[in-house]
Design a binder for these strands. Structure first.
Lengths: 112, 112
DNA sequence: TTTCGTTATGTTCTAGCAAATATAGCGAAT
DNA sequence: ATTCGCTATATTTGCTAGAACATAACGAAA
């Protein structure tokens, strides 16, 4: 059996984590469900944890990543801003490229 | 202030971590000091933690990464095998390249 | 003005991980 | 055969991140 190279990347802003794999999952789930609580359920994490993550994302980002509507018809909801969508897309792109890069670096330890 | 991309890479073998940044630091300290206990001191971690890390490394690797001498003149000691040295060098090289790669990917989020 | 499903937040409990402590075992050299 | 400094391992203690639980606030619609 051969060795494997694994990696994790994340984007930071002023020493705070802005986006990592977990946060991106959450944002995508919000985009799909239209609400933070539904997104939390779909990811099998507590609402509180989801809220804390999202709060941290919005506080670290230069511009709002989601619009959160409180109260009103249906109780409210949350949705990604265009800025949020472009952040998610950029992260996915860079992450995918990183995998490909490391896959190519794997050659260097194949013989070990 | 601009966003930054951070990363962490590691090498796995059969779903066990073989080498990460911490383990590489430990191996380098062993190389410099000639003993596991001195290496632990120099890294400010407990001997036990250092031993557990090293044990895990040697159990995950295909060939021994260190030779541990127990008892004898000076009480014993530990040193890297040639195989261990080449693993450390390969990791450092890949890690360095990964930084450079991500630095270049940074362009993609510069405008965000 | 009551209902509803959400967002928003505080508080308590717990399990798992890290640190601290203790001790056994080893073998060359004197 | 005793000393020495190291490797090897068990046990206990302490801490902290996360889970679980609880509840307040909100605003449109009926």
């Amino acid at each position: 059996m051969s060795y494997k190279i694994k990696s994790r990347i994340w984007i930071e802003s002023e020493n705070n984590v802005l986006l990592g794999e977990g946060r991106v999952h959450l944002l995508k789930a919000i985009q799909e469900t239209g609400s933070l609580s539904k997104a939390a359920k779909s990811l099998n994490i507590s609402y509180k944890k989801a809220w804390q993550l999202l709060d941290s994302v919005n506080k670290s980002a230069k511009k709002p990543v989601t619009i959160n509507n409180i109260g009103g018809k249906g109780g409210g909801g949350a949705e990604l801003t265009d800025y949020g969508k472009s952040l998610v897309m950029a992260f996915d792109d860079i992450n995918k490229n990183c995998w490909a890069f490391l896959d190519q670096q794997l050659e260097k330890i194949k013989h070990l």
